[in-house]
Every structure is written in C-alpha cells, then in structure tokens.
Write a protein that binds this DNA or RNA. Structure first.
Lengths: 135, 135
DNA sequence: TTTTTGTTATATTTATAGTATAACAGATAG
DNA sequence: CTATCTGTTATACTATAAATATAACAAAAA
C-alpha cells in the first residue's frame, strides 16, 4: 500500500488515511471497483488499530467513495462518484476561507495563490511517478 | 465587534475567532495598530470564556499578527506582518492538498477550482459591505 | 491607591482519537 | 456442513484537546 502515516502529526491518522485514499482515487492509482485491503490487513500493515482503519473506511463509504460488502471486502466506488454539489462547495469555501485569508495577510497576491492551487491540483491529477509507469 | 461564532460548528471557537481576526486584518477592517477588546471584554461580548479568547489572541501573537502589552492591551501588528515564507507555504500546501483532491474526485476541473479560490480571495480582500453604514 | 490589563494556576467537564479485546453474523472456500 | 475471513458491534480504557469556572498575581496607568 502506498499510504504513509505521520504518527506525530496533528492531523488524525484516520483522516490522513482517508485523505490519501481519496487522493489515490483522484489520481487513478485506485481504479473504480478495485479492492482495498481488509480493515485487519491494512491495520496490521500500517501498524495501527483496526478501528482506526474502519473509521476511515466508514467515512469514505458515508461520502460515497467506497462500497463495502460482507466477504467481498472494500472496493473503490465502481459507479458514479459523488459530485461537487452545493453542499460540498459550501464546505469547501468554509475550509478554504481561513487559508486564503492568511495567504492574503502574508502578502501573497491572487495569482500566487491560484497558481499554487493549480500546481497542487495538477500534481494530484498526474502524480510524480507512482511506482508503475502507466495505466 | 464583527465576530460571529457558531457554537454548534465542529470548528473550535478559538479558531473561529482567530480566523475572523486574521480575515479582519486581511480586509483592512482591522487596521495596523488598532486596539482590540480586552480578553474579558470580548469574552463577555461573545458570551464565551476569557481563556478561549486568550487562546486565540496568544496564537495570533505567536504568529506575529498581534502585539500584546500590559495595560495597553492587544493591538493589531503595527509593524511588518509575517510573510509567506516556505514554512507557511508548506503548511498551506499540506492543508490545501486534501481539499484539492476531493474537489478533483468530485469532478471539479482546474478552472472551476481556481476560480472558486479567486472569488474567495477577492471577497476577503474587498468584503461585501460591513453591517454598519458609515466608515 | 485603585483599577484594568494580561498572565498563570488549578480544576472540572465534555468530546475526540486511538487502542485493546471480544464477540456476532454473513459470505465463501474447502 | 464446516471452517475461515469479512465487516460490524459492543465495551472499556487511556490520552489529549476544547471549553469553562474561579482565583490569584503582577505590571501599567489613571
């Protein structure tokens, strides 16, 4: 698994995990329908508790990014992914707001900030060489 | 005071307060050198505990956005504000990353996302008329 | 001197994060 | 059918953060 956790981070590890799975889906590293490790396997693999993995899986299932079946295990959403509806955009704006404000206060202009976002977006969409060559 | 808190929010209220003060500085609503209410006054004003206000003030002092003097009270940084150094940009990227990833997964393209950021930046820089009529 | 200021010190409550076990129930492979 | 692996649920415990509640201290200014 490509997941890397920082146990010292202030960011909860279940969120780090969930974030990296979303990023995997975003980049195509995780294909629709692809199976993910079981909660126990991944927990052992990452050296954390199975409930922590389960919490990440549950939140992504709740959002519609994963499907979870009994013995089938956990798979990446094979059908249509959730959309950028108004609910999401509202939350997105709320989360971006303090970041944009601090960037502004610190003297970043509009172009610097949007370009940073652009660069970030592209680096996620086309990650810098993930083990395998193509897809 | 223009601060509005959502006590039901998952965002800690000390952070809501700190964020809104930063936004005030960003927009110019809070001018350099301007005095802020005392921790007790603002706490009473907002209906929260003085330690919660103090925590917000301390974090902003730590970052360099505020100065705190004994009897003088708290004032907006009159000198040069902190800059967008690499430390900040690294943190900024780390915080933006999961938001950009989810936006991407939900089908927002690069332009939509950067435009949303642009709109946000501008609305902070030039806020849509503060409640009061004059000044 | 008195008041107001930030500051420090405790203490308590509540919620979240993370771990640790254990057990349950459905699906599948043997 | 049986054994195993799956997600799931339940409980319990520890640690930490957030928020509140009092109280007191020390510096600055009126």
């Amino acid at each position: 698994m490509f997941v890397e956790l920082d146990l010292q981070s202030e960011v909860p590890i279940y969120k780090q995990l969930a974030d990296q799975l979303v990023e995997g889906i975003a980049s195509g590293t995780l294909a629709p329908g692809q199976a993910l490790p079981s909660v126990r396997t991944l927990a052992a693999d990452l050296g954390i508790n199975l409930h922590t993995v389960n919490k990440a899986y549950q939140s992504l299932k709740q959002e519609g990014f994963l499907e979870i079946h009994r013995k089938k295990g956990v798979i990446v959403q094979p059908g249509p992914l959730p959309t950028a509806d108004e609910t999401f955009k509202t939350r997105l704006r709320r989360d971006l707001r303090p970041l944009a404000a601090e960037a502004l206060v610190r003297g970043m202009n509009e172009q610097e900030l949007t370009e940073l976002m652009q660069t970030l977006y592209r680096s996620i969409q086309n990650p810098p060489s993930e083990g395998g060559t193509s897809r």
